[in-house]
């Protein structure tokens, strides 16, 4: 009985091993193909941005493989001399950094309050904030444009920043409240016994312990705002527009503006890609947690 079992097993394992080798090879090949397929569009953009407009209107980017002499930084050079573009790059930073910092600070305050303070209806208030997590940004465009117009910040950097903070807060409060709630009570009690006040407790104990969650939130919010086009399209004017808005004005004449769009798109991608490769862990948890937005 056992010998039969073993021989069957042995037979299966030899056949199985051969099968595994073959299918393993096929699998690797298929995955390499898919990976290449996923990379090609981005490589196409990069190579397109490194060719002259004349070359681009004559042939596809893959021609550089047979004619590497076509590669040139001319488009980048002229793009960086274009004051509209450089100003919009600065605007992108001027919008993104405050919108990220404010969401972290304001969201932490509320997250801490929801996690450790006692006040009537606390859990209900928190539930309402969580419910706001999925409210579409589109809903607010018309009313907020009116509101900002009335108080005179329509078209300004402050307006876009405020909008992004408002729509970043539900996720921030949700993420941070859950994280802060896991802080061991003993730590907070010890600090309290040492005579720390509410603010001191928050700044010295809660914020530092919240590091990982704050990093995830920061990266998610940073990328969200950096990559936004729709909100900025409505709430900025030509002086305050970020790079995404500056580029989209060129899209209608796509063929004629490839020399601006190619390098412009690539420059706008550099920071997000750097963040992606440098902070993969936090990026993944941030994107996974915040994707409902």
């Amino acid at each position: 009985m056992s010998t039969v079992d073993e021989s069957v097993k042995a037979k299966r394992s030899i056949a199985g091993r051969i099968g595994e080798k073959v299918s393993g090879g096929v699998l690797q090949f298929v995955l390499i193909l898919i990976g290449a397929l996923w990379l090609v569009p981005t490589i196409g953009l990069l190579l397109s941005s490194l060719r002259s407009t004349e070359d681009m209107s004559a042939s596809g980017w893959w021609k550089v493989f047979s004619k590497p002499s076509q590669l040139t930084f001319d488009s980048y050079a002229s793009l960086l001399e274009n004051s509209d573009i450089t100003r919009s790059l600065v605007n992108t930073a001027l919008i993104t950094v405050p919108a990220t910092v404010l969401v972290i600070v304001i969201g932490s305050l509320a997250g801490y309050a929801f996690a450790w303070m006692e006040f009537p209806g606390r859990d209900w208030w928190f539930l309402i904030v969580v419910g706001l997590l999925v409210v579409p940004v589109q809903l607010a465009l018309v009313p907020i444009a009116k509101l900002f117009g009335d108080i005179g910040i329509f078209g300004s950097l402050i307006g876009v920043i405020l909008f992004h903070v408002g729509f970043g807060l539900p996720f921030a409060v949700f993420l941070l409240r859950n994280f802060f709630a896991e802080i061991p009570r003993e730590l907070l009690e010890a600090a309290r016994l040492d005579g720390a006040g509410e603010l001191r407790l928050f700044v010295r104990v809660v914020m530092p312990l919240g590091g990982p969650a704050i990093a995830s939130l920061g990266i998610f919010q940073f990328l969200w705002v950096w990559n936004d086009m729709l909100v900025a399209l409505i709430f900025t004017d030509t002086d305050s527009q970020p790079i995404t808005v500056a580029l989209q004005t060129q899209v209608r004449q796509f063929g004629n503006n490839v020399d601006v769009l190619g390098p412009g798109a690539f420059i706008s991608m550099v920071i997000p890609l750097a963040v992606f490769f440098a902070f993969q862990r936090q990026f993944v948890s941030g994107v996974m947690a915040g994707a409902v937005k």
Binding site: P41, G44, S48, N227, M229, L247, A265, M269, V275, V287
Partner: peptide
């Protein structure tokens, strides 16, 4: 591609 803007992705796919 999750890291890049839909604008950049749009330009990529226009090409």
């Amino acid at each position: 591609p999750m890291a890049i803007s839909m604008l950049a992705a749009g330009i990529i796919f226009r090409l």
